[in-house]
Simulated scan of single mutants.
Amino acid sequence: MGTTDDGVVLDLDGHEVTISSPDKVFFDARGETKLDLVRYYEAVAEPLLAAMGGRPVLLQRYPNGASGSNFFQKRVPKNAPTWLTTTTVSTVNGTTSEALVAADVAHVAWAVNLGCLGFHVWPLRADDPDHADELRLDLDPQPGTDFDLARAAARELRALLEELGLTGYPKTTGKRGIHVYVRLEPRWDSYQVRHAAVAVARELERRRPDLLTAAWWKEERGQRIFVDYNQNAPHKTVFGAWCVRARPGGQVSTPFAWEELDDIDPDELTIASVPARVAEQGDPWAQMYAQPQSLAPLLAMHERDRAEGLLDAPWPPVYPKMPDEPPRVAPSRAKQPD
């Protein structure tokens, strides 16, 4: 590590990355700085890159740290280093931009220097944009629920996947929820993966309507855990594993083993504690990468639902209207029959 008038210079993966204002406090609870955040990502580099290496990432920048204002940035700035790896990504309306690819820790550190605390990750690799190789099942606590209910929801999801011969791999979201991932063989596109997520959400709601909901409209969810199937919609990103949230304590979206579900405390998993956890326990998702799985059992469940007359589930408002989607209006605002 060297120093210049502009900050400190790190040699990472054969690249020199300048960290300006390295002592700027990014996390208020313990006073961790921008440089501390870079060092965190260095410490967890192996599992981090196993999770998001080679994938496009969306930057959410907090120039003044976790407690400051933020903005999203999809495009890599024109003055970026020539060694950065980028790839072309699209929005739902077809607008393209050059996004950062998480090629190595140097790329991560470069983004952290811009004030990026964590990364929102595409469910595909830059070298295979036509296939989504991750199903991401988001168990999203609604008002009036807590992490204990998210645990219970995760147990139901695990049981369903196991019945279908599939293995899910959980992580904390870094907030109140739980994400469960299924790494897929690269054979299906994002529309098919979303179909599978819709089928999972609906089946979980059938089994435990007291606990889980597939309702897109907030007014229908109640005090239940929402299975957010639209996190798998085309061009959608999800907050990445091992990435750091914009919270004063620097909480990390942390993969964990199912055996830890009863004891895991998302607030205790921070940039201060997670490196030691990784050093001691390794990567709980390692097996997921070694054994990609088939989406076929979930697509069969989707086809069953459609054969029984169910329409597509509602899409987010930024997406074009789909052919067999129900009316895109909240039930309370729908026109009542005369």
Rank of each mutant, 00 (worst) to 15 (best):
R328A: 07
E134L: 06
E280I: 14
L137A: 06
T95V: 11
I225E: 07
V8K: 14
T95K: 15
L204N: 02
V9N: 06
E32V: 01
M322P: 02
P255A: 10
D28V: 00
P186M: 12
D312P: 15
L184N: 03
M1Q: 15
T88I: 10
T85N: 05
G309E: 01
D23S: 01
L310F: 08
V9P: 08
S67G: 10
K175R: 15
V17E: 02
W242Y: 15
D5S: 07
D130F: 09
Q231E: 02
A150S: 05
G2E: 07
T95C: 05
V92E: 02
A159T: 13
W242N: 11
A233S: 04
L212K: 03
A109H: 06
S69D: 11
A296K: 04
G168Q: 08
A214R: 04
L10P: 01
V25F: 00
D6A: 14
E268L: 05
A257K: 14
Y191V: 05
L149V: 05
S20W: 01
N70L: 06
V180C: 08
A201P: 06
T167L: 06
W217A: 06
G115T: 09
L299C: 09
E308T: 11
W110T: 11
D210K: 11
C116A: 15
T96Y: 07
D11Q: 15
A199G: 04
S97P: 11
N232P: 06
P326Y: 01
A279W: 13
E205Y: 03
T213I: 12
V274I: 13
P143M: 07
L84G: 13
L310Y: 06
R245A: 04
H195T: 00
A272S: 11
A150K: 01
L84E: 13
